[in-house]
Computed example of a mutant assay.
Amino acid sequence: MKFCSYNIQYGIGKDELVNFNRIVAEIGTPDVICLQEVERFLPETGMSDQVRELAALFPAYHWVYGPGVDVDADIVESNGHVRHRRRQFGNMLLSKAPILSSRNHVLPKHGLLDAFSLQRGLLEGVINTPSGPLRVFSTHFSHCSPQERRDQAETLLDIIRRGPDQGGSWSGNNASAHWTETGNAPPMPHQAIVMGDFNLTPKDAEYDVLVGPWDVAHGRLSKRDNLVDAWDYSKSGDFEQPTCTERAQGNRPVRSVRLDYAFVTPDLAPKIKSMFVDVEAQGSDHEPIFVELDL
């Protein structure tokens, strides 16, 4: 199965133009797509509903959307009727197979005094694969605070670890027909893949929280309940392969860095076949990443 993750920057490409058709062409037809920076009703992108636009451009896919930011954008018309709109910013998950259940987890957020900080989320979907059910996460960590990202990394790991014990959208064997035609609770498997823009480099301390610290003598000291970096495990290329060219900010110059990752639970790591970064993509300031798993 082929998985893709792409921070689409609201559709704004390297030429500063919004072009969703270009993004769709760059993604192609993988089995599962994880998107970040998908927004609804923001002025800079024409007050458009990007979730609906993208869903229409991928008509053969099931999809769910999980906003981190969710604020009022309603219009009260002259007759007093409310035209309902929510200004949202978040993650999207699309799958050729049905998304059996979904949860949108809110990640920790620090209340910063001056730096602009957005609420971030972790969108979870359970899909069936030829090897059985799999949890897929699309996420986007904080862009400005290393400590905030560390808290988000620890929360992500906790969500993955606790999921099987908590059960899915409901648990128990006595659900009525009001909830299910089959009587079965949605599965909540242990195996998981987490894809997205983590806003951290492989040299950052937050990276070690996710995959374990590096030791000169013994290499990566991953624990059984850590995650595995699919790029590193598959030996697909330069460990610091850039996936984004960031604009200059404050005292930080323009830099090309690896910010986008695919992490898997250790039991899924042996099924990684390959990973690829499309360095030619022009649809965003990020490049899409692709992972193939033997499922």
Rank of each mutant, 00 (worst) to 15 (best):
F3H: 01
C4K: 00
S5W: 04
N7F: 11
Q9Y: 14
Y10R: 12
G11R: 05
G11S: 08
G13K: 09
L17A: 11
N19K: 04
N19S: 12
R22D: 04
I27E: 01
D31Q: 07
V32R: 05
Q36D: 06
V38I: 11
F41N: 01
E44A: 15
L57T: 05
P59C: 09
A60S: 15
A60G: 12
Y61C: 04
V64L: 00
G68L: 04
D72M: 10
A73E: 10
V76G: 01
E77T: 11
S78D: 14
G80Y: 03
R85Q: 11
R86Q: 12
R87T: 00
Q88Y: 00
L93E: 04
L94Q: 04
S95V: 03
S95N: 05
K96I: 11
P98K: 05
L100Q: 10
S102W: 08
S102M: 12
N104I: 03
H105I: 14
H105Y: 14
V106R: 14
K109V: 10
H110E: 10
G111T: 12
G111V: 07
D114A: 12
F116K: 09
S117D: 15
S117M: 08
Q119W: 11
Q119F: 11
Q119I: 11
I127N: 08
N128K: 13
T129N: 11
P130D: 12
P130S: 04
G132K: 07
P133D: 09
R135K: 14
H140M: 05
S142A: 14
E148C: 07
E148N: 09
R149L: 04
R150C: 13
D151H: 13
E154C: 09
D158I: 00
R161S: 04
R162V: 00
W170D: 09
W170V: 08
S171F: 11
N173F: 12
N174W: 14
A177N: 07
T182P: 13
A185I: 13
P187R: 08
P187G: 13
P187W: 10
P189R: 03
Q191C: 08
M195G: 14
G196F: 02
L200V: 14
L200I: 14
D204T: 05
D204A: 13
D208H: 10
V209P: 00
G212M: 06
P213R: 04
R220E: 00
R220S: 03
S222R: 15
L227P: 01
V228Y: 02
D229T: 02
A230V: 00
S234C: 03
K235I: 02
S236N: 01
S236F: 00
D238G: 02
Q241R: 14
P242L: 05
C244R: 07
T245M: 06
E246C: 12
E246L: 15
Q249I: 10
V254Q: 15
R255C: 09
S256W: 01
S256G: 06
S256M: 07
V257W: 00
R258E: 08
D260M: 05
Y261I: 02
F263M: 10
D267W: 03
L268V: 13
I272Q: 02
Q282N: 03
S284P: 03
D285F: 01
H286Y: 09
E287K: 08
P288H: 01
